[in-house]
């Protein structure tokens, strides 16, 4: 947050037309990712976190034609104003992505070695032998045992954890500045999840890559992210340093999410659940999108959309009920 951020999204609006109507998938006032930092984008299903990630790469689904407005600044350029040819050069080389399901995000008809080598050949314009050597180097970087053997396998012959290591190898092969990791460990078991998260953190230290980690798991975000942005119904409601946002949340939604997780020693008591369900993004509620479920909702909340405001040096919250005096240094502000 000190110098110019690596990625800065402003007023991003993504609307998709589906057969059920126009979906207001993302309506995000701003989000930044600094150089080399890990930023968590956390929220529930359908809150727009994946759509935000795909908009950065210009990869929105063609099955639902839609409009994308706003600005996505990345290393001095607005990505939304770049043509398809330039975006193709940026994808993979400057920004790359790993996906939730590591097995199905690889092509089942080719060996993982061919898929890894192809990325390197295409972008670096090197011969097949050099690409193969680079592929082997990447395998040892992501700590795949016995790389020669693994590269000859097809995705279905490898475990989920190994496929995700291949996915990470492909994503980092060109040393991008930004890695977008969309639920990279959601389909993995906890012990494998821990391995993959540690691998991403290690590689980030070594290569200086910034990571935008998209996740629904507050635990994963709390453990690995420097900063976190909490999304609800298409917008970021709270963002800032992880140590502040998740330890002293100010937005009622962040507070509710954290409170609803079962914690040690809480066995006898009912979980404080957030009432209601996530709203439809075809007809999002007016004003603050969280107001129908919010215990602090006032008449103003249903009329006026709250703008994000800085509360303290490393925290920002979009809520009418939270003034600039909150946060600060008062540890009891999370109430």
């Amino acid at each position: 947050m000190v110098s110019e951020p690596l990625l800065s999204i402003r007023n991003l609006r993504v609307q998709l037309s589906t057969d059920r109507g126009l979906v207001h998938a993302v309506d995000l006032s701003h989000l930044t990712v600094g150089r080399g930092e890990t930023c968590g984008l956390v929220g529930e299903t359908g809150c727009g976190k994946t759509m935000t990630g795909l908009s950065i790469l210009g990869l929105l689904p063609t099955s639902a034609p839609g409009t994308v407005e706003g600005e996505i600044w990345f290393r001095g350029r607005d990505l939304l104003k770049r043509g398809p040819a330039e975006m193709r050069r940026i994808r993979g080389r400057e920004i790359s992505m790993i996906f939730q399901d590591p097995v199905s995000s690889l092509n089942p008809a080719f060996t993982v070695g061919e898929q890894l080598a192809r990325v390197i050949r295409w972008h670096r314009r090197v011969g097949s032998r050099a690409a193969r050597q680079a592929a082997l180097d990447m395998c040892s970087l992501v700590r795949l045992p016995d790389p020669e053997q693994v590269l000859r396998r097809y995705p279905h012959q490898l475990s989920g954890g190994m496929c995700q290591r291949i996915g990470i190898a492909i994503a980092l092969a060109l040393r991008p500045h930004l890695l977008i990791a969309d639920e990279p460990t959601t389909s993995l078991d906890v012990t494998i999840q821990a391995q993959i998260l540690r691998l991403i953190a290690d590689l980030q230290d070594r290569l200086g890559t910034a990571v935008l980690l998209i996740s629904h798991d507050l635990g994963v975000v709390a453990q690995v992210c420097d900063r976190v942005a909490v999304m609800y119904a298409g917008d970021v409601v709270e963002q800032g340093a992880t140590a502040r946002v998740l330890a002293r949340p100010l937005h009622p939604y962040t507070q509710g999410l954290l409170a609803s997780l079962p914690s040690r020693g809480a066995s006898g008591r009912p979980l404080p659940a957030i009432p209601g369900t996530v709203p439809s993004l075809i007809h999002p509620p007016p004003g603050c999108r969280f107001h129908p479920r919010c215990s602090l909702a006032a008449p103003r909340c249903s009329r006026e959309r709250p703008r994000p405001r800085a509360v303290g040096p490393e925290q920002e919250v979009a809520c009418h009920a939270r003034g600039p005096h909150e946060g600060g240094d008062r540890p009891d502000a999370s109430g």
Binding site: L218, A222, Q223, A243
Partner: peptide
Amino acid sequence: SASPSPDPTRRQEMAVLEGQ
């Protein structure tokens, strides 16, 4: 130990298990 805690002030030493 591998189950991540949502408390950022309690960062754990995760991944004590290698292999599959």
